[in-house]
Simulated scan of single mutants.
Amino acid sequence: MQEKAKIKVGISIGDLNGIGCEVAMKTFEDSRMLDFCTPVFFASNKTISFQKKALGIDFNFNGIPNARKPLDGKINVVNVWKDMPKTEFGECTSEAGDYAIRSLKAAVASLKAGEIDVLVTAPINKKNIQSEDFNFPGHTDYLAKELEGESLMFMVSEQLKVGLLTDHVAVKEVAAEITPEVIVKKAKTIERSLKMDFAIRKPRIAFLGINPHSGDDGVIGKEDDEVLRPVIRQLSDEGHLMFGPYAADSFFGSENHLNFDAILAAYHDQGLIPFKTLAFGKGVNFTAGLSKVRTSPDHGTAYEIAGKGQADHSSFKEAVFTAISIFKNREEYLELTSNPLQKQKIKK
Rank of each mutant, 00 (worst) to 15 (best):
D217I: 05
P203Y: 12
L194D: 03
F243E: 15
D225A: 14
F207C: 11
K185D: 08
P245R: 13
R201I: 09
I220C: 07
E238N: 11
E181Y: 11
L194W: 00
K195C: 13
A187V: 07
D249G: 11
D237Y: 02
T189R: 08
I232S: 04
A175M: 09
L241G: 03
G221D: 03
R204T: 05
V227R: 01
F207V: 09
R229I: 08
I220A: 08
P230L: 08
E226L: 14
E181S: 11
P180L: 08
G209F: 03
R192P: 02
I178G: 02
N211L: 03
V182K: 11
A206W: 05
M242G: 02
I205P: 03
F198N: 01
P180T: 07
P212H: 06
V231W: 00
E191A: 11
K222V: 11
G221S: 05
K195G: 06
G239N: 09
L228T: 13
S193R: 07
R192C: 07
K202D: 15
N211T: 10
K186W: 12
Y246L: 12
G209A: 03
A206T: 10
L208T: 08
I232A: 10
N211P: 10
I200K: 10
E177V: 04
K202T: 14
K188D: 04
A248K: 00
I178W: 11
G215N: 02
A175V: 14
H240F: 15
K188Y: 01
F243Y: 15
G239A: 10
P230Y: 02
D216R: 09
P180K: 09
G221Y: 03
L241E: 14
I205R: 04
P203W: 12
E226I: 08
V227F: 02
F243M: 12
V219Q: 13
I178K: 01
A176G: 08
F207A: 09
V231Y: 02
A247S: 15
V219H: 13
D197M: 06
I190A: 03
V227H: 05
T179P: 09
E223G: 12
P203L: 05
D249N: 15
M196A: 13
A176S: 14
K195I: 09
A199F: 10
R201W: 07
A187P: 04
I200C: 04
A187F: 01
R229D: 06
G218E: 06
S236Q: 13
S214G: 08
F198C: 02
K185P: 07
K186Q: 15
F243T: 11
F198M: 10
P203S: 04
L194V: 11
H213D: 04
D197K: 06
I232M: 08
E177A: 15
L235W: 07
V231S: 07
